[in-house]
Lab assay of single mutants.
Amino acid sequence: KELVLVLYDYQEKSPREVTVKKGDILTLLNSTNKDWWKVEVDDRQGFIPAAYLKKL
C-alpha cells in the first residue's frame, strides 16, 4: 500500500472529499487522476487535491 503526506490543511467542500491536516500520513487508494487523489482517512474514503499531497 502506498502512503502520502499531507502538505497543507484541507477542508472538504463536498461529500466526496475528506478533511485532512498538514502532516497527516494517509493511505493512497488511487492517483490515476492528476488533479484529485483518492485517500483513506479514519475508515473514510474520499478525494483531496493532488497538489496537497506528496507520495512517500
Score class of each variant (00 low, 15 high):
12 E>L: 10
37 W>R: 01
49 P>L: 05
22 K>Y: 05
54 K>L: 12
54 K>V: 14
27 T>D: 06
29 L>M: 08
37 W>L: 02
19 T>N: 05
10 Y>R: 03
5 L>V: 12
52 Y>N: 13
53 L>P: 01
34 K>N: 12
37 W>T: 02
32 T>Q: 12
44 R>G: 06
42 D>A: 15
12 E>D: 05
53 L>Q: 01
4 V>P: 00
46 G>Q: 05
50 A>M: 05
19 T>E: 03
35 D>E: 15
26 L>K: 02
3 L>Y: 15
1 K>I: 13
56 L>C: 10
3 L>Q: 11
14 S>P: 06
50 A>R: 12
15 P>E: 12
37 W>F: 05
40 E>P: 00
23 G>T: 01
7 L>V: 07
3 L>P: 04
28 L>Y: 01
26 L>I: 14
51 A>W: 13
50 A>P: 09
23 G>P: 00
13 K>W: 05
23 G>I: 00
56 L>T: 06
35 D>Q: 14
41 V>Q: 09
42 D>M: 14
47 F>K: 02
43 D>W: 08
52 Y>F: 15
56 L>V: 12
8 Y>N: 13
14 S>L: 08
31 S>W: 09
8 Y>C: 14
31 S>E: 14
55 K>V: 14
55 K>I: 12
44 R>I: 08
32 T>I: 09
40 E>A: 10
21 K>A: 09
48 I>R: 00
41 V>N: 10
39 V>N: 00
1 K>P: 14
21 K>D: 04
5 L>G: 03
22 K>D: 02
11 Q>E: 14
32 T>V: 11
32 T>C: 13
39 V>I: 09
10 Y>N: 01
42 D>P: 07
10 Y>H: 04
45 Q>A: 12
37 W>E: 01
7 L>Y: 02
5 L>F: 07
43 D>R: 10
21 K>I: 07
14 S>A: 09
44 R>Y: 06
8 Y>H: 14
14 S>F: 07
37 W>S: 02
50 A>S: 13
20 V>Y: 05
1 K>S: 11
19 T>I: 03
39 V>Y: 01
1 K>G: 11
21 K>F: 09
28 L>M: 04
10 Y>G: 00
20 V>G: 05
21 K>Y: 13
6 V>Q: 00
52 Y>A: 14
24 D>M: 15
13 K>D: 06
54 K>R: 14
50 A>Y: 02
42 D>L: 14
17 E>Y: 04
51 A>Y: 14
31 S>G: 11
2 E>Y: 09
4 V>G: 04
23 G>C: 08
43 D>G: 15
6 V>M: 02
34 K>W: 07
22 K>E: 07
31 S>V: 06
48 I>A: 15
17 E>I: 03
29 L>R: 03
28 L>I: 05
47 F>V: 07
15 P>Q: 11
46 G>V: 14
6 V>W: 00
44 R>P: 00
33 N>I: 06
46 G>H: 07
49 P>I: 02
47 F>E: 05
39 V>R: 00
41 V>M: 09
15 P>F: 07
53 L>T: 06
13 K>M: 13
50 A>D: 02
47 F>W: 15
10 Y>E: 01
25 I>S: 02
21 K>L: 07
11 Q>D: 15
34 K>T: 12
2 E>L: 09
16 R>H: 14
17 E>L: 04
20 V>W: 04
26 L>W: 06
44 R>E: 05
5 L>M: 10
51 A>V: 14
51 A>H: 15
49 P>Q: 04
31 S>Q: 09
41 V>Y: 10
36 W>S: 04
35 D>G: 08
44 R>Q: 07
43 D>H: 12
10 Y>F: 06
28 L>S: 02
33 N>Y: 09
53 L>G: 06
4 V>A: 10
3 L>C: 11
54 K>N: 07
44 R>H: 08
56 L>A: 04
6 V>K: 00
23 G>W: 05
23 G>A: 03
42 D>I: 11
43 D>M: 09
3 L>E: 06
6 V>T: 04
30 N>F: 06
51 A>N: 15
12 E>T: 09
8 Y>W: 13
31 S>H: 10
5 L>H: 04
25 I>E: 03
4 V>H: 01
34 K>H: 13
25 I>Q: 04
47 F>L: 09
37 W>D: 01
51 A>Q: 13
18 V>K: 02
40 E>C: 12
16 R>A: 14
53 L>K: 00
42 D>C: 12
31 S>R: 07
22 K>G: 07
4 V>I: 05
29 L>I: 14
14 S>N: 12
44 R>T: 07
14 S>G: 14
38 K>L: 15
15 P>G: 09
52 Y>W: 08
18 V>F: 08
28 L>T: 01
37 W>V: 02
54 K>F: 10
4 V>D: 00
4 V>W: 06
49 P>M: 03
3 L>A: 05
11 Q>C: 12
23 G>Y: 05
8 Y>L: 13
46 G>A: 07
32 T>M: 13
20 V>D: 00
9 D>S: 09
32 T>W: 08
14 S>D: 13
20 V>F: 03
18 V>N: 02
48 I>T: 07
28 L>D: 00
33 N>V: 06
8 Y>A: 14
4 V>C: 11
11 Q>M: 10
30 N>E: 15
47 F>M: 09
8 Y>Q: 15
13 K>C: 10
28 L>F: 02
47 F>A: 02
15 P>S: 13
55 K>M: 10
27 T>N: 10
44 R>C: 05
45 Q>V: 13
32 T>L: 10
56 L>N: 03
48 I>M: 14
27 T>L: 14
34 K>F: 09
33 N>C: 11
34 K>E: 12
52 Y>L: 11
19 T>K: 05
27 T>K: 14
23 G>Q: 02
36 W>H: 04
41 V>C: 10
5 L>S: 04
13 K>I: 07
14 S>H: 15
56 L>Q: 06
48 I>W: 01
34 K>G: 10
12 E>Y: 06
24 D>G: 05
11 Q>F: 15
25 I>L: 07
54 K>Q: 15
10 Y>K: 00
